[in-house]
Amino acid sequence: MAYNLTNTRKIASEEGMNIGILHERRNQEHRVALTPAGVFHLVKYGYQVYLESGAGQDSGWSDEQYVKAGAQLVFSAQELYGRSNLVMKVSPLELEDLPYIQEGQSIFSWQHLVMRDSKIIKTIIEKELTVIGYEIIEDLFGNRPIVTYVAEIAGYMAVITSLHYLQNETGGRAKMIAGIPGVPQGSITVLGAGLTGAAAVRAATGIGAYVVVIDKDLEKMRRLDDKYHGRISTFYANHTNIAKAVGFSDVLIGAVASHGDLAPRVVSQEMVQSMKYRAVIADLSIDQGGCVETSRPTTLADPVFVEHDVVHYCVPNMTANVSRTTSNALSNSMMRYLEAIKDLGLDKALITIPCLKNGAFFFKGRCVKEYIARRFDLIFEPLKSE
């Protein structure tokens, strides 16, 4: 059975379905899962929405705005979890969440479960949770509607942030990428020609950089080459080409897609050692372990470190630094799925709507992603369509 997301006819209704919006507090997470406009729409659609006080404040939305939109305020994470069937988060589940999670609850967030503590996986199973990851929601054609928006933001930010860390006062190599007459422009290498990589290419070409794109997908690189009329260079992704490009780059942006699994380490420590003095690496794959061997997660409060005289920027939630834009994008992209869940009920929505089915890591405590089962030595039980 296929469900048309443009069809607003109510097929079924989930009695008592309600949503809880958590106030994220860890790792400078400023984003919020739903905006006041999103809450207003969902309340009109029939949801009861609970908001933990302060959830939207870092993105410029007050509790009062959410209450006017129809949300009911609660004043602790414990109360929020206790009242909600479906918890909307931004950051992945952490150990601190576990005592509050209710049996049979559903959790929507960026999950990145391959990087999570095994205690979190154990709790998901024991409490029979349904866990949906924004990062793996995908339609039948391979499009990832939620990732698309955030990947574009991350790609632009990677270039802007890297330029900042090239400057003297931030410990960089004291170079302006654009160049001036008589002084050549700098070089930016983008590993990966997917959504994030393409956004980074757009930003990098816009500032006048010499841009190199590396990927194994020749069609993706052909499309980028056609779009920029030969103003970029494209390299096929092999060890020789990656090592060559890394060696001459002023900025290296890692945008290697891993689709929920661990990112491949395509840049070795030896390659990093070959880079120019105080060149910059922005590893955007760090939320899946990183694509550069020397990368390790950093935070917005302490975003960079220097290793082998190369500046590393490895913030998993970098788009939290433009939280209002990112929160709007996330809230907008979730509306049609939340409508469908209200119409059909979560269980039926997960087996009839490809995006939601593909986005599930766990269904009522059962692992429905093979690579997660393999990593944590679990039984793999795929979701079956009607």
Rank of each mutant, 00 (worst) to 15 (best):
Q105P: 03
L95S: 05
A198G: 08
K384Q: 15
S53Y: 04
G197T: 08
K175Y: 15
I107T: 02
A174V: 10
D302Q: 13
C314M: 06
D377V: 04
F141E: 15
V190N: 05
N328V: 10
Y210I: 09
L163N: 11
N85T: 04
A279R: 09
S333D: 14
T35F: 13
Y45C: 07
S53I: 06
L338D: 08
F108K: 02
L98K: 03
A12P: 05
G38Q: 12
A245C: 14
L224D: 10
A282Y: 09
I353A: 01
P264R: 12
D250F: 14
G186P: 15
R222Y: 14
L300M: 10
Y100G: 00
K369H: 03
K276L: 10
P316L: 07
G230H: 13
I132L: 13
V159S: 04
Q288I: 11
I19L: 15
I207N: 04
Y3E: 01
R202E: 12
A255G: 12
F40E: 14
D226S: 11
L378W: 01
L86M: 12
L356E: 06
Y371A: 06
V147T: 15
F363L: 03
C314L: 06
I286F: 09
G247I: 13
I372L: 10
I11G: 01
F305R: 00
L346G: 04
G20Y: 02
Y50T: 09
E370Q: 13
F361N: 13
S187C: 12
G289A: 07
V306M: 02
K276I: 06
G186F: 10
I372Q: 03
D139C: 05
S385H: 00
K175R: 14
Q273S: 13
G16L: 07
H229W: 04
D58F: 07
I101G: 05
T298A: 15
E64R: 01
A151I: 10
S331I: 09
N168E: 12
E15K: 12
A257S: 15
M275G: 03
I146G: 08
A55C: 11
S333I: 04
N143K: 14
G365P: 04
M17R: 12
L95W: 01
P184Q: 11
M115H: 00
G104V: 02
K384C: 11
L344F: 04
A200E: 03
D225V: 01
E135C: 05
